[in-house]
Write a protein that binds this DNA or RNA. Structure first.
Length: 422
RNA sequence: GGAUGGGUGGCAGAGCGGUUGAAUGCACCGGUCUUGAAAACCGGCGUGGGCACAAGUCCACCGCGGGUUCGAAUCCCGCCCCAUCCGCCA
């Protein structure tokens, strides 16, 4: 949600921001609706003011025992005009709100311009890619050969885009979650949270998934939505609240399942575990002071990178261009892990600074100490990391010629000392 | 699922249909007192918006939406949410 006052002051900045996002200019329309709304409001308020004054006079007349019929008749005559003005105001306001609610967050100045993922810019590469003296397999081959990954059973149970993990692989997923949570809570100061994974509409409106991206979500017949990411409940921890300045930053981490309908992704990543309707993820969320959010963004991204580092996985950091960023984000780093079976880097974490965009939508504020006014907080979220993809990365990078998989030392304590899947 | 009770300012909590935007307390801000702090006392203190250069002034907001009325936080209807009890259940 954008700040109407900001648009009023610098409409050209809005159109520039929208242009960078590949959206048509809207400042003129916003300005017109805003002016319309204000004109109607003024008209309405003048009517109402007259009516209020007359009503007060009626009260006084009645109290004094004087007749008030004449005044009452006059008030009745005023009503139609008032109703029209109010109706017109409401219409303009509704259209204006819908317009503002649908607009994406203006990108940060240092976000590169671009229309799609081809415009993303690689910032760094870390970790050595493994060298194989055989043709590396992908995780599907590896997992199925080990008898630990079963897509057929999953299809039998749930259809396409699901998987059944068994034995050591099921345990590996749990081990990874445990490992990530430990690092984030013990070393980066995140508070572990176990949130609901069914939420109501306002929570999803707050983070920006609703109303625009309803088709990406699953919904229950009780009207609840299955969360597409723990960003939703964690960020909403601050929703509707007025925090004390000293409470900032809030740092939350959670391990939850995530549900996505993948409505628009037919035919993409249909093989394996890359893109599923359901996957597990350890999420990071920070609620920060506006002056501190840029630094918090770097810090959060490093926390996610720390996981990759300890799992000895090769990755690169990419900054998303204006055309590839989510609507709520003002700046996003993607971490992409190397997958030998795909011969490509694939997203395993996405860390975004949303500025005050979500905070406005969910009314998340803080009170600067000594001030009576409130300000919107900044919200940030990042994967720390997606578990399915981390698991894939371990399989494909740790694979041996015989089809077994060597696990990195960092995860072994969580696997009861197990060093190798075979 | 059934039955009650309830949703008012940052929080707690009043509010006969007519200057109630709303008592009171806490918190907060300023001041007096004090070597300093606390206490006590005095004063201030909701949000959003329109108009105005401004002082200011006006409008809206007591969960949400309708209705009754000249006038609604207060009466009526619908919806949402919360709490408690019962039933069911991991």
């Amino acid at each position: 949600m954008l700040d109407l006052r900001w648009i009023r002051e610098s409409p050209e900045a809005l159109d520039r921001a929208l242009g960078r996002r590949g959206e048509p200019p809207a400042a003129a329309r916003v300005g017109a609706l805003d002016a319309e709304r204000r004109a109607c409001q003024t008209r309405f308020q003048e009517c109402r003011q007259r009516r209020n004054a007359l009503s007060r006079e009626i009260g006084r007349a009645k109290a004094a025992g004087e007749p008030a019929d004449e005044l009452i008749a006059e008030v009745s005559r005023l009503k139609d005009g008032e109703r029209d003005a109010e109706e017109a105001e409401r219409k303009a306001a509704a259209e204006l709100d819908a317009l503002l609610e649908g607009m994406p967050n203006p990108p940060d100045e240092d976000v590169p311009d671009g229309t799609d993922e081809a415009g993303n810019v690689e910032l760094s590469r870390t970790g050595a890619r493994p060298e194989f003296d055989f043709a590396p397999k992908d995780h599907v081959e590896l997992g199925e050969a080990l008898g630990l990954m079963d897509f057929e059973r999953a299809a039998f149970l749930s259809g396409a885009r699901f998987v059944v993990l068994r034995g050591a692989l099921a345990r590996l997923e749990r081990a990874l979650a445990q490992f990530m949570l430990d690092v984030h809570t013990e070393e980066f100061g995140y508070e572990e949270v176990s949130p609901p994974t069914l939420v109501r509409s306002p929570a999803l409106f707050g983070t920006g998934q609703l109303p625009k991206f309803e088709q990406d979500l699953f919904r229950t017949d009780t009207g609840h939505w299955l969360i597409p990411t723990a960003e939703v409940p964690l960020t909403n921890m601050a929703g509707g609240r007025i925090l004390a300045e000293e409470e900032l930053p809030l740092r939350f981490t959670a391990f939850t399942p995530c549900y996505r309908s993948e409505a628009g992704s037919a035919g993409r990543d249909t093989r394996g575990m890359i893109r599923q309707h359901q996957f597990q993820k350890v999420e990071l969320v920070s609620v920060a002071h506006p002056d501190a959010s840029a630094g918090e963004h770097e810090r959060m991204t490093r926390a996610a990178e720390a996981i990759l580092e300890r799992l000895e996985l090769p990755w690169r950091r990419v900054i998303l261009c204006t055309g590839d960023m989510g609507a709520a984000a003002r700046k996003t780093y993607d971490l992409e892990v190397w997958l030998p079976g795909q011969g490509a880097y694939r997203e395993i974490s996405s860390c975004s600074n949303c500025g005050d965009y979500q905070a406005r939508r969910m009314n998340a504020r803080f009170r600067p100490s000594g001030s009576k006014a409130t300000r919107f907080v900044h919200t940030l979220n990042g994967s720390g990391l997606a578990l399915g993809r981390a698991l894939i990365a371990l399989l494909e990078n740790g694979q041996q010629a015989d089809g077994s998989v060597v696990l990195p030392p960092a995860i072994r304590p969580y696997m009861g000392g197990c060093e190798r899947l075979e």
